[in-house]
Amino acid sequence: MSILEALIRRNRVFAETRFDPRLRMRPSLNTTVITCLDPRVDPAVVLGAEQGEIAVLRNPGGRVTPRTIEQLLILQEVARANQPDIPSERHIVVLQHTQCGLTLIQNRADMLTSYFEVAEENLSAVAVGDPRAAVTRDVAALRAEPCLDGIQVSGLVYDVLTGLVDTVVPPREP
């Protein structure tokens, strides 16, 4: 059986046993998690979220880049179009992790300056090699975005060796 066939078979089991057509477009916990593409860091599994509770944006390193902010703003507009009465309590969680593959290419300014949209001399400020510093930087970037005003933002680091998350930046009223 091919990988695709196995995935389709799993989908059929999902559709028969766990599919819920009542789920809404907006996550029930009014939370969006920004995290890495690394398969060890599945935010629903790591944070114990059920289907439909969180929205997830994944990218290399789980980083907040200008593109990430653009995606958040688009999702915000989709939410408004779908349900004009946006809940008052909304949250963004930046979830980065230890042993991130992005650290393996932190010397690749040719790639990372474009990804983060920064000049090479400013690349060290994005803290590619330090997940705690990166989370702090990325939460600050989100909190500074005026279009995200009114959204609580916090930052966590997931340890891939222990399975635990550590709160690096606690939520606060924006």
Rank of each mutant, 00 (worst) to 15 (best):
4 L>F: 12
5 E>A: 15
7 L>R: 07
7 L>A: 14
11 N>F: 04
11 N>T: 08
12 R>H: 13
13 V>N: 06
14 F>N: 12
17 T>W: 08
18 R>E: 15
20 D>P: 06
21 P>I: 08
23 L>Y: 05
24 R>F: 01
25 M>N: 03
27 P>Q: 11
27 P>S: 06
29 L>N: 04
30 N>R: 14
33 V>G: 11
35 T>F: 06
41 V>W: 11
41 V>G: 04
42 D>G: 12
42 D>E: 14
43 P>A: 14
45 V>P: 06
46 V>I: 13
46 V>G: 01
46 V>L: 00
48 G>A: 09
48 G>L: 02
48 G>S: 07
49 A>C: 13
54 I>R: 01
55 A>N: 13
55 A>C: 09
56 V>N: 00
56 V>S: 04
57 L>G: 10
59 N>H: 02
59 N>F: 00
61 G>D: 01
61 G>M: 05
63 R>P: 01
64 V>Q: 06
64 V>A: 01
64 V>P: 03
66 P>L: 03
66 P>V: 01
68 T>H: 05
69 I>A: 09
70 E>Q: 14
71 Q>V: 14
72 L>N: 04
73 L>M: 10
74 I>M: 10
75 L>D: 10
77 E>V: 03
77 E>C: 04
78 V>H: 10
80 R>H: 12
81 A>R: 15
81 A>D: 09
81 A>C: 01
82 N>E: 13
84 P>L: 09
86 I>H: 03
87 P>T: 00
87 P>G: 05
90 R>M: 12
90 R>C: 05
91 H>A: 02
91 H>K: 15
91 H>M: 14
93 V>L: 09
93 V>P: 02
94 V>Q: 00
94 V>G: 08
97 H>G: 06
98 T>P: 01
100 C>L: 08
101 G>T: 00
101 G>V: 01
101 G>E: 05
105 I>P: 00
106 Q>D: 15
108 R>W: 05
109 A>L: 08
109 A>N: 04
110 D>G: 11
110 D>K: 02
111 M>E: 03
112 L>D: 04
112 L>G: 07
113 T>N: 06
113 T>K: 02
116 F>W: 11
117 E>W: 05
119 A>E: 15
120 E>Q: 13
121 E>W: 08
122 N>T: 02
122 N>I: 03
124 S>K: 13
126 V>N: 00
127 A>N: 15
129 G>K: 02
131 P>V: 05
133 A>L: 15
136 T>W: 05
137 R>H: 15
137 R>P: 07
139 V>E: 00
139 V>N: 10
139 V>W: 13
140 A>G: 09
142 L>G: 06
144 A>I: 04
144 A>S: 09
145 E>D: 14
146 P>S: 02
146 P>I: 04
148 L>P: 06
149 D>R: 15
149 D>H: 13
152 Q>T: 13
152 Q>G: 12
152 Q>H: 14
153 V>T: 11
153 V>E: 09
154 S>L: 01
156 L>M: 13
156 L>D: 03
159 D>G: 11
160 V>D: 00
165 V>R: 08
166 D>Q: 15
167 T>R: 10
168 V>P: 11
169 V>Y: 00
169 V>R: 04
169 V>F: 04
170 P>N: 01
171 P>N: 07
171 P>H: 00
171 P>F: 04
172 R>G: 13
173 E>T: 13
173 E>D: 14
174 P>T: 09
